[in-house]
């Protein structure tokens, strides 16, 4: 239970970049898993993969639901403010938790398109195999590889725009 909670919370947090939203989404994931447990079939992959799939679907739903709010926010706030926005409203323990680069990467992740973001999170943060990502995203392996590659390149470009340069 604790292991799954930690894993799902991390996926949600990396996807949304917000602890409160991540908490709510994690709770929603477990609620949905609990209600749809009868539909789980081990033939479709392990339980963790199935749970990740449920998480991904909820995250996409959440992304679509909050898209309008984000568009309004992005119109109001210029890009350099993104970093300030990350700093404002975050508790000191969160600030301490994320290092400088980690904070920038997290910030860049939230600006990535949801398709590329989820692929990068599952591959580079959750260390899932291609076959598992394929099951979660329900796309062919070639598409998975392509999304991961494009996501990494896009993320690197966002970081460059944010002024992060490789040492």
């Amino acid at each position: 239970m604790r292991r799954h909670t930690r894993r799902i919370f991390n996926i949600c947090y990396r996807f949304t970049g917000n602890r409160t939203e991540a908490e709510d989404l994690t709770q929603d994931v477990f609620l949905r898993v609990y209600r749809t447990l009868a539909s789980y079939r081990s033939a479709h992959g392990g339980f963790a993969t199935w749970m990740t799939s449920v998480t991904r679907n909820l995250l996409i739903d959440h992304y679509r639901r909050t898209k309008r709010d984000r568009v309004t926010d992005s119109l109001d706030d210029a890009m350099p403010v993104v970093e300030n926005k990350e700093s404002v409203g975050r508790r000191p323990d969160e600030q301490a938790l994320l290092g400088e680069l980690s904070g920038q990467v997290q910030s860049a992740l939230t600006r990535l398109s949801p398709e590329l973001r989820e692929a990068v999170i599952l591959r580079d943060l959750q260390q899932l195999e291609y076959i598992e990502i394929q099951r979660v995203l329900e796309v062919p392996e070639g598409t998975v590889k392509s999304r991961i590659n494009r996501g990494r390149i896009e993320l690197a470009r966002i970081l460059q725009q944010m002024g992060v340069r490789p040492a």
Binding site: A22, V105, Q106, L125
Partner: peptide, 11 residues
Amino acid sequence: GLYALEQVEPP
């Protein structure tokens, strides 16, 4: 940077 990201502890 991605690999250096640590797991965030849930509340």
